[in-house]
Amino acid sequence: MKSKTLSSENAALSRKRALRSLKKNLVSYSFLLPFIVGTLIFTLYPIVMSLLYALSNFNGTRITQIGFFNFGYIFDFSEFGWGRRVFGSLGVTFLYVIGNMTLSLVLSYLLALFLHRNIPAIRAIRVLCYLPCLIPGIASGVIWTDAFSTNLADPSMNGLFNTWLMKLGLEPMTFFTAASTSLPTLIFTGLWGIGGGMIMWLAAFGNISPELYEAAKMDGAGYFRRLFFITVPMSTPILFYNVVTSMIGGLQVFGTYANYGVGVEDSLHFIAIRIYITAFQNTFPGNYGLACAMAWILFVIIAALTLVMFKTGGWIQYGEGDE
């Protein structure tokens, strides 16, 4: 009897405390409310609905079937099954991520190394290197499309690069007009944005303590020893950040669709584009269910890869304390 009274007293006390805390934090909660409501409506609801649609045959208007069949289609690797198409797109996307990430990281690193020195007009040179990043992707895409345009039937209609090649007495190249050259050409156009990576590297170099270099110099370390034993290890946190964000961004690459479509023989048919086309293509009603299922597969892949990268992040040098 006594313990019952005690527990009811405790409950009343904790209710009182919660009410008091709510009153105390009411202003904070009222400021947070728009964000919470926004997250619930514009993030959580679409996430839940996309999972529901992934389990249905929703075509934008109605659902007449529910189950796991969309995932069955995605893993159907028969001759005309969706499996080949979806995983074909995933393959192209991974190739793009690997090519784009490697080339962009290496070249932006080299560019940053080159620009990390005190020479006259260095700031202006840095700005010039960064300028292409300010051009919207769609605009630069138009420029590249024109510059790489190929017309084997009528050489007078060739773009800038082929005109140069022909003036040098070389054969015009296929660039975006052949499956084998589309992806490398697209990766090449990605170099337009290395200025963005360069800024990150410059910031990382700026954070490396000059004392380390001085000590190394006193020990007789040359440029390359300082580079490989100080600069590179000390910029691994930014390297890790760049790798993770490039990978996530690369796996979701979509902007290329506006300028280059899906490429010859699906050579640029990235997974995000396939999801979009499956859901919203113009000539036939969208298969929202299948598109949502693909999107969930992509989410799982990205989440798994990100997790692996964090789990294997022992090589990152966080400096003193190495946290």
């Binding site: 999972l51 529901l52 389990l55 249905s56 659902i63 007449t64 079937q65 529910i66 189950g67």
Partner: peptide, 14 residues
């Protein structure tokens, strides 16, 4: 969660 979604989805079937 998937079960709940499937059940709620069944209510939308036409």
């Amino acid at each position: 969660c998937l079960g709940a979604l499937l059940v709620s989805g069944c209510g939308l079937i036409e």
